[in-house]
Write a protein that binds this DNA or RNA. Structure first.
Length: 470
RNA sequence: GUCCCCGUCGUCUAGUGGCCCAGGACGCUGGCCUUUCAAGCCGGUAACGCGGGUUCGAUUCCCGCCGGGGACGCCA
């Protein structure tokens, strides 16, 4: 194989870009980029009843978000109908394919009959194999498949795979509406686009022998194949909508970083060595290789994704986190765009949240007037008479203190002195304060929290809390 | 049912005959740190599906079984 492969990702636009598709796209992209090859994006939209334009857009957006850029395309199969027709006609002329006039109903009847007779697998009986040709009558095109023998190929990840020809029938390659069927469309496209490595889900293994036979009938050299293991849901079944969160868009909206997604997906089926889990984009580009893709299916684990997401949030600068955080806040109805505290929230919360959405949800309290919601338990425990003097002291300090006395370090010093003075642990003062400021007992350091809330607002919140003490 | 693929901790994986009484990571869990919650650090938990071979020696090779997944369309 030459050094610079041409690979492709060929989704069908019948819904969202799901996790499995994204992983396939990623592996192809990495493979191409790593070797300086070409990555082609092709839209397999020949099923007119299921393909939609919105879906094409969703797929494009998803790839863009993941940073998977393509060199050629998107090429739509529906723009290439003449090419398929031409290839089909070539096969018919050489008698390697024939027109079949059986209606779907008739074929269905044959299928039923064969099943009743106990056939293991349906095979088209070849009714039209030798019929006179009537190009003007409604028909499909079937390819003549060998009746004996076998086809073997060496899969880049699975090794040698052999398929007996008796499991292959005279496949329909063109349907009556003049559009190609999957197995024909891919072959014509991959061949004419010069694709030399096809990496796709291993649910396509069965199709591969048929496709190789089609390559051969057409007189093209088959590419190399790499069948990637499936991604399963927690119930070990093929990942599907039933499993809930399977679309790339969903993760984006839930506040995941695209790089966390990439890092997670790449580890589903691929590993570098016995210890590396974290990969930057550059490292991936340097190390990824189809040779190290495993053979067995992987279960999608949302918790590990979350862990990676937090990891990458911690690696991302506060400035870069600010704007996606603002977007998440906007989804909660809070306009924080341009607020200088955004970077501060990112700094203090990236180790405290698994996603940007979670970060926005916990941090929204800094962008509202007063505390909208109190944790009842916390309130009962800390907004009590015993806390009153401490809350008052802090409030008065905030009111009276000079700027340098109430900046974070000044405040911290003052508070420690005060606690020592009362011979109390800092917690005795900090916890009631937390509840007053954010409505619950968990927050960043108490002085950071005060600074986030802001002096004026902190005073108001403490007063409000004092009013709640009966 | 038939054909194909797969089978190491709950999960993602390393491992290509001795380095493995199996390594890393997520999760779970004990501890440390600490004004709370996280994060971080240290420790623990837990796996080679089963049965036959081959071999001085099998997680690694072969066969059978079992288990899981996938494919059997005028879907892709």
């Amino acid at each position: 194989m030459s050094g610079k492969p041409r690979v492709r990702f060929a989704p069908s636009p019948t819904g969202y870009l799901h996790i499995g598709g994204a992983r396939t796209a990623l592996f192809n992209w990495l493979y191409a980029r790593r070797l300086g090859g070409t990555f082609v994006l092709r839209i397999e939209d020949t099923d007119r009843s299921r393909s939609t334009e919105e879906s094409v857009q969703v797929i494009l957006d998803g790839m863009q978000w993941l940073g998977l850029d393509w060199d050629e395309g998107p090429i739509r199969q529906t723009d290439r109908t003449e090419i398929y027709k031409g290839h089909a006609n070539r096969l018919i002329e050489k008698d390697l394919a024939y027109r079949c006039y059986c209606t779907p109903e008739q074929v269905e009847a044959m299928r039923l009959k064969q099943r009743e007779e106990g056939a293991a697998q349906f095979r088209y009986p070849g009714t039209c194999r030798r019929q006179p040709q009537h190009p003007d009558q409604p028909h499909v095109v079937r390819i003549r498949m060998p009746e004996s023998g076998e086809t073997t190929f060496d899969d880049l990840v699975k090794g040698r795979i052999t398929t007996s020809h008796d499991t292959i029938q005279d496949e329909v390659i063109m349907r009556s509406d003049g559009l190609p069927l999957y197995n024909f469309g891919v072959v014509v496209d991959d061949a004419t686009m010069g694709i030399d490595v096809v990496a796709r889900g291993d649910d396509h293994i069965n199709n591969t022998a048929r496709q190789i036979l089609i390559y051969e009938a057409l007189g093209y050299e088959p590419p190399r194949f790499a069948h990637l293991p499936m991604i399963l849901g927690q119930d070990q079944k093929r990942l599907s909508k039933r499993h809930g969160a399977v679309s790339v868009t969903w993760y984006r909206e839930e506040g995941y970083l695209s790089h966390a997604m990439v890092n997670y997906l790449v580890r589903l089926g691929w590993s570098l060595d016995d210890k590396t889990e974290i990969f930057s984009r550059e490292e991936l580009l340097r190390h990824f290789d189809l040779e190290r893709v495993g053979c067995s299916a992987a279960v999608f684990d949302p918790e590990k994704l979350q862990w990676l997401n937090q990891h990458w949030m911690k690696e991302t600068s506060d400035e870069d986190l600010a704007s996606p955080l603002a977007e998440q806040l906007a989804r909660l109805g809070i306009d924080a765009a341009g607020d200088p505290r955004l970077t501060r929230v990112a700094e203090l919360y990236k180790a405290r949240a698994k996603t940007l959405k979670e970060m926005a949800e916990t941090a929204r309290v800094y962008f509202t007037d007063g505390v909208a919601e109190f944790d009842e338990k916390a309130k009962r425990k800390f907004l009590v008479e015993a806390s009153r003097p401490h809350l008052e002291q802090v409030r008065d300090q905030l009111k009276a203190g000079t700027a340098c006395q109430i900046d974070e370090s000044g405040l911290e010093g003052w508070m420690r002195d005060y606690a020592e003075c009362c011979s109390l642990g800092l917690g005795k003062i900090a916890q009631p304060l937390r509840v007053a400021l954010v409505g619950k007992t968990a927050s960043p350091g108490i002085c950071e929290t005060i600074s986030l809330v802001g002096r004026e607002e902190a005073i108001r919140r403490i007063d409000a809390a004092l009013g709640m003490i009966e």
